[in-house]
Design a protein around this nucleic acid. Structure first.
Lengths: 205, 205
DNA sequence: TTCATTATCCCCTTTTTAGGTGAATTTATC
DNA sequence: GATAAATTCACCTAAAAAGGGGATAATGAA
């Protein structure tokens, strides 16, 4: 029985490239593609692919968040992250959110097929470049933020003061201050400037 | 006579996608591809394509700089920028360096063909999304920073205080403060957090 | 050479953030 | 139902940034 593949990527050329690469593989059944997170979720309500190739950058939602949601709702589908960015923060968070693999957009046909076979066995597939990146940055872990911390972080980056954030979230300014201090501690930075830079760099905001 | 096309992109899937899209076009002659700026320049020493599709992000050199170099050495070839980023700063700089067009990686076959025909006539082609981005940001121009302001901005984003920046640049803290205030004014933001976010967003740091 | 820009420096006050410490309450998890 | 994690709140002091004013030298282009 053929392996059902579904792609989520907003770049037509990439979709076309993958389709072209897989065209002659008899063991692969091409189910189609979605270019937004919303249309991906709509598709999954009706059909169940075996493997989803998921881009990190989508227009309506981060692929990292989409990965989490899809894994919770449809745990039978394996997800392979797909990105141009060989960056440890992306890879790490994608895997934390339940991805079974991560390949770069310069992957060859052989790499893709190997990735499929590996994840179907329930194993994790990382391309050579990717696993090298992870090893290199094994010590520099990306901190995990709570829901509230993310909210506060976003408002900080928008330029709001603690007082404004407090009134926006209907909490005390001292509470906002606590979250702010926890953020500085988690990111191991000294002030807001470095905090925002770090967060932007790792696409946390 | 068929139009000779050459691609510079380090993503195999994108190359394959474009090749697949152009496969059945009789008016297009596929000359091949390069995945680095260096191999692109080596290729151009021997052969002359009519149109070069050039990615902005290359491993060894920025596509923006490569564009400038190729236009100077081989002015007969039209260059079309190719990127996932629909960002005015990239588009603007690519066009300033002599590109004849700019298309996104979600372009369709029709869009690509239209781009080729347009640039061959010596005209400029920008896809709808791209020209919309340019229009949208026509008023909200990205502020032009001076050499010193850039230095200060980078050190701010690294988390240094005015005192530390001053000693790093061998100037007074009040001078750093002045630059900082000018930065806030130029970017039209209220504090450091928003400043850093804005700067990161437009890849100024 | 003039004129505009850039870079430098100083004063003041108020607001905001950072650093340190402690603790109660809700929420999720086992 | 116990435990851990997350969220909430408070008070203190010190440091840093923001907002306002003004001023002088150097640079560079027209």
């Amino acid at each position: 029985m053929a392996t059902k593949i579904f792609i989520v990527d907003d770049h037509y050329m990439v979709i076309e490239g993958i389709r072209s690469l897989l065209q002659e593989e008899k063991t692969i059944e091409w189910m189609g593609h979605a270019s937004t997170a919303a249309s991906c979720l709509a598709f999954l309500q009706k059909q169940q692919p075996d493997i989803i190739l998921m881009d990190i950058n989508l227009p309506d939602m981060s692929g990292i968040d989409l990965c989490k949601e899809v894994r919770e709702k449809y745990p039978s589908a394996f997800i392979i992250g797909l990105s141009t960015f060989n960056q440890q923060s992306f890879i790490q968070r994608m895997m934390e959110n339940g991805a079974s693999g991560y390949v770069l957009k310069n992957a060859t046909q052989e790499e893709l097929m190997e990735a499929f076979q590996t994840v179907l066995k329930g194993k994790v597939y990382l391309s050579d470049d990717v696993s090298q990146t992870l090893r290199k940055n094994a010590d520099a872990q990306i901190p995990v933020l709570t829901r509230r911390e993310k909210e506060v972080l976003e408002l900080i980056a928008e330029g709001l003061t603690n007082i404004e954030i407090a009134s926006r979230l209907f909490i005390s300014t001292t509470t906002v201050d606590t979250h702010r201090k926890n953020l500085l501690a988690k990111f191991d930075v000294r002030n807001t400037a470095a905090l925002v830079k770090y967060a932007m760099l790792h696409k946390l905001i």
